[in-house]
C-alpha cells in the first residue's frame, strides 16, 4: 500500500516540475519521469500488459517531444499571462478540485473493486468465462480482441485518422510524400 503513495507522490512532483520549469527540454524530460513512474505503478497494480505498452510508448513519445524542442530558438518561456485571467482560472480549477473530491468519496474504497460486489457485472463474466469462450489465457487479450473487438476496430480507425492528419499537416514542402517515387 505504501508503494502506491510513494509512486503517486513521485509522479505528482515530476508533474509540478514539468509544469513550472522555464526550460522546455527539462519539462519534456520530466514528462518522461511521469511516464516511467506510471509504468511502475501499473506493474504494482497487477497490469503487466499496460506496463509494457506504457514503457515503450513513453520512449517513442519522448522522441517525438524532444524532436519539437531541439533546434528551436525559443525554448525558454517568458512570463505568465495577464494576472486577472490567471486568478480566475485558478479559482475555477480549485472549485473543480473540491467538487471532484466530494464525488470521489462516493466511490467504494481503494482495493475493493466494484465488479466483485455487483451481481451480473460484465467483468465478472469476462473473468469466469474468458478462457472457456475464447481459449486465450491472457484475459486482457480475450476482452480486447473477442468480447469488445469493436473498441479495437474504432482504435485502429482513430490511429489511422491521426496519422493521416499529421501527414497532411506536415505535407506542404514535401508534396511527393505518399506518391510513388517515380511519378
Amino acid at each position: 500500500m505504501a508503494i502506491f503513495y510513494i509512486l503517486l507522490l513521485f509522479i505528482i512532483t515530476a508533474a509540478i516540475i514539468a509544469v513550472e520549469t522555464k526550460n522546455l527540454l527539462s519539462a519534456v524530460i520530466c514528462v518522461g519521469a511521469i511516464g516511467f513512474g506510471a509504468s511502475l505503478m501499473f506493474l504494482f497494480l497487477r497490469a503487466p500488459d499496460i506496463a509494457i505498452t506504457q514503457i515503450v510508448v513513453e520512449v517513442l513519445g519522448l522522441i517525438i517531444l524532444i524532436r519539437v524542442c531541439i533546434s528551436r530558438e525559443l525554448t525558454f518561456i517568458s512570463g505568465p499571462r495577464e494576472f486577472f485571467a490567471v486568478v480566475v482560472s485558478v479559482v475555477i480549477i480549485f472549485a473543480i478540485f473540491l467538487a471532484g473530491i466530494k464525488v470521489l468519496e462516493t466511490l467504494p474504497a481503494f482495493g475493493t473493486p466494484i465488479f466483485a460486489e455487483v451481481p451480473d457485472a460484465a467483468s465478472q463474466t469476462y473473468v469466469e468465462e474468458g478462457l472457456r469462450k475464447t481459449g486465450a489465457a491472457n484475459l486482457v487479450a480475450s476482452v480486447i480482441l473477442d468480447f469488445r473487438a469493436y473498441d479495437t476496430l474504432g482504435e485502429a480507425t482513430v490511429l489511422f485518422t491521426a496519422i493521416i492528419g499529421a501527414t497532411v499537416i506536415l505535407r506542404k514542402k514535401t508534396k511527393k510524400l505518399l506518391e510513388e517515387p517515380d511519378v
Partner: peptide, 15 residues
C-alpha cells in the same frame, strides 16, 4: 483484478 479497464486503457495509451 478487473480485466475490462485494462483493455480500455491499452487502446487509450496507443491512441
Amino acid at each position: 483484478v478487473d480485466p475490462l479497464p485494462q483493455a480500455l486503457v491499452l487502446t487509450a495509451i496507443v491512441i
